[in-house]
Simulated assay, not measured.
Amino acid sequence: MKKHIFIFLVIMTSLGLSSYRWGFYAHRRINRLAVFTIPPELMGFYKKHIVYLTENAINPDQRRYAVDNEAPRHYIDLDVYGDSALQVVPHNWFDAVEKYTEDTLQAYGIVPWHITLMKFLLTKAFEEKDLDKILRYSADIGHYIGDSNVPLHTTENYNGQMTGQYGIHGFWESRLPELYADDYDFFVGKAEYVDNVQERAWEAVTAAHLAMDSVLSFEKELSKRFPESKKYSYEERGNSTIKVYSKKYSHAYDQMLDGMVERRMRASIKMVGDIWYTCWVDAGQPDVEVLKSLEIEEKTKKQMEEEKKKWEQRTVKSREHN
């Protein structure tokens, strides 16, 4: 894993600004903390596999560079649908396809609809007591839920490239959590059953999108008060020297956001736990002792390793978030 991270840092250094993305830090932390929200009757199963769920929280991000249709599952560019997007875009997939066509939806992102699909797949995996799929879909849906709660995953201006704020994506979702997450309050209570996962996904996207203007406008305002030499600094990461947003600039931005990153991470943790639990309930609450007795098959482990080697080849061009 350290080798993979180092390779990623080298790539980011060549681009001029470091980026860990929500995936390399926050996604792992979100999935891990979601385990502790699960009610006692199911927690034993998820705790047994907490390492898997934590380590594989970034798999969908790695697949973005190897699977053609993966990238749109991580975002939705709501602003391309107009100022009233939250009111006019249908929440039901088939209604949305009828209104805009599937090609259009895929072009501008499908994260809320994909969460609904993943909920169906995870429920079915529980019904079939298929451990490999339960763990894979649990880790994956946690990732997509995390993405749905990120404001910059709801706009075409996802990295500030349209407003002269290139690099803000990694700044908001990676640099700030990396610096301040240890001080965040991640106690979100116990997971609860979700009556309508489709609407819950849209609630997440809506809350994130409503915060998007502040993410951009606050940084734009702050940058006017900091000269370039104070806005950025350099840090040693492994064997590399990485350009990052300075701690002073990061602190000022975090203060302006007034806990926004913490709130979006808390919302993600709670939502992941809620939907994991909901899938198990909707599957008829299969015996947890039976689930705990299952082990991942060796062929599945080998398949996962082969997949990850393929992902590292980065054969598909995808949105960058540095």
Rank of each mutant, 00 (worst) to 15 (best):
I275C: 14
W276Q: 08
W276P: 06
W276V: 04
W276T: 04
W276I: 06
Y277K: 00
Y277R: 05
T278Y: 14
T278H: 15
T278V: 14
T278W: 15
T278L: 13
T278S: 13
C279L: 09
W280I: 04
V281N: 07
V281I: 12
V281C: 10
V281K: 13
V281S: 04
D282R: 05
D282Q: 01
D282H: 01
A283M: 05
A283T: 02
A283N: 01
A283F: 10
A283E: 06
G284R: 04
G284E: 04
Q285K: 06
Q285M: 04
Q285E: 15
P286S: 02
P286E: 05
P286Q: 01
D287W: 04
V288Q: 08
V288R: 04
V288A: 10
V290R: 11
V290C: 06
V290S: 09
L291D: 06
L291Q: 01
K292F: 11
K292S: 13
K292E: 15
S293I: 02
S293N: 14
S293A: 14
S293D: 11
L294F: 03
L294N: 09
L294R: 07
L294S: 10
L294Q: 06
E295W: 00
E295F: 01
I296G: 00
I296P: 01
I296L: 15
E297Y: 03
E298P: 02
E298G: 10
E298N: 10
K299D: 06
T300Q: 08
T300E: 13
K301D: 11
K302H: 11
K302L: 07
Q303D: 04
Q303T: 11
Q303P: 00
M304L: 07
E305T: 15
E305C: 03
E305R: 15
E305V: 15
E305P: 10
E306G: 02
E306R: 15
E306I: 05
E306S: 09
E306T: 11
E307N: 13
E307G: 05
K308E: 14
K308Y: 12
K308N: 10
K309I: 02
K309P: 01
K309R: 13
K309F: 08
K310I: 01
K310L: 05
W311N: 09
W311V: 03
W311P: 04
E312I: 02
E312A: 14
E312P: 02
Q313G: 06
Q313W: 12
